[in-house]
Design a protein around this nucleic acid. Structure first.
Length: 199
DNA sequence: CAAACGATTTTCT
DNA sequence: GAAAATCGTTTGG
């Protein structure tokens, strides 16, 4: 294996981490089943200064406590009472920044993902969307707070290089309530990839 | 203790 | 394109 080291996540700029994660391989070994997929879409959540973030203004609650951990752990939470969303925590301890994984392209364990999603054939609907990513990879609240150095959830280098010209930068989705911060260019995806979630 | 609210997806019209 | 599904977290009384 070739797990990304902790220092990869502990850079100070969240948007840099969000972009660097594009083209990397997100792997899970959950319930004895291995699955892996290339990250094709991410969003940055920039801590206390970002109104769209759960930790806006330095708010600490039982739920958001994970965001304050040192970079390199998974932050999983339930949204709309139905979907789990996966974030990769970045930065230093006490600095609540993270990257939401919005879409991935399946590469290994596709049969397992099809079963988890109750689908017949592979396609963008398998994992193009933050709630779909966690379903396909088998991630749930049990993975909240786990280190990416453990064997449950981790990210590997792939050798795939995504040039700046292949990265599209735009505004985040579903954060209209955040006022001006909803206009920040914090969403990144690989140009032309069919697994990028569409609005 | 009660009530409102989502970093969404699916289904129906 | 509109609306329902559905529940843990957060906030207010």
């Amino acid at each position: 294996m070739n797990k990304l080291p902790d220092h990869f996540y502990r850079r100070q700029d969240v948007t840099g981490v969000a972009q660097a994660l594009l083209g990397k391989k997100l792997c899970t070994l959950i319930g004895e089943e291995y699955t892996a997929a290339i990250i094709v879409e991410t969003e940055a959540y920039s801590g206390i200064a970002d109104r769209a973030s759960h930790s806006y203004g330095g708010r600490r609650t039982a739920r958001t406590e994970t965001m304050y951990r040192s970079g390199g752990v998974a932050y999983v939470y339930l949204c709309y009472g139905i979907h789990y969303l996966l974030n990769v925590i970045s930065g230093r301890e006490g600095d609540p920044t993270g990257v939401l994984i919005r879409a991935v392209e399946p590469v290994e364990g596709i049969e397992v993902m099809l079963r988890r999603r109750k689908m017949e054939r592979p396609g963008p609907r398998l994992s193009a969307g933050p709630g779909l990513v966690t379903q396909a990879l088998g991630i749930g609240k049990a993975q909240n707070g786990v280190s990416l150095q453990e064997g449950q959830v981790w990210i590997e280098n792939t050798g795939i290089s995504v040039s700046a010209a292949d990265i599209v930068t735009t505004t985040r989705i579903g954060v209209d309530y955040a006022g001006d911060d909803a206009l920040l260019p914090y969403r990144f995806y690989i140009r032309g990839n069919p697994y990028v979630s569409k609005k």
